[in-house]
């Protein structure tokens, strides 16, 4: 069985200059697609990626990452909507490249589909009441 998941990797400072991803891909035969990476030497690195492959290999790959001190989060948790601040205006609709926002045709409320979100962050500053927040 194959799996494909979008995850956020947090690299502690000591790992930033080691070829972790290269080994992950080679040793566990996984495919990856980097959606976003902020890796600065001497600081914590954050990488958002889609990782796919055989379930067995995927699990071992994740074990390899966590065993080396990489903290892993599911992507859905990373961009969140502050429901108290969102006014459901819809300014985000055409800004999102993956169409993660949709208008309910009946209520005209804006739904945020977290599964489509790739955490690019474009909505954060385009939201007039600043209701979208990134939490890495």
């Amino acid at each position: 069985m194959t799996v494909a998941k979008r995850i956020v990797l947090h690299f502690p400072r000591r790992l930033v200059d080691r070829p972790i991803i290269c080994r992950l891909i080679k040793d566990y035969n996984l495919e990856f697609n980097i959606l976003k990476a902020v890796v600065t030497p001497q600081e914590e690195g954050v990488m958002v990626m889609e990782l796919s492959g055989e379930q067995d290999n995927y699990d071992k790959g994740i074990e390899f990452l966590t065993g080396n001190g990489v903290r892993i989060q599911a992507l859905g948790q990373d961009v969140i909507r502050n429901e108290e601040r969102c006014t459901h205006c819809g300014a985000c609709l055409t800004i999102c490249p993956t169409l993660a926002f949709e208008v309910d045709p009946t209520t005209r409320k804006v739904n945020f589909n977290e599964e489509r979100c790739v955490a690019c962050g474009l909505c954060i500053k385009a939201c007039p009441p600043r209701a979208m927040e990134v939490h890495f």
């Binding site: 459901h88 205006c89 819809g90 055409t94 208008v103 005209r108 409320k109």
Partner: peptide, 25 residues
């Protein structure tokens, strides 16, 4: 506009509102 798309110069253009209709309701 509320259908989500308008046609401008032959192009389909996605629309978005800055005014909240649910809050107006």
């Amino acid at each position: 506009l509320k259908s989500g798309r308008i046609v401008v110069r032959g192009n389909e253009v996605p629309t978005a509102s800055l005014s909240s209709y649910p809050r107006a309701v």
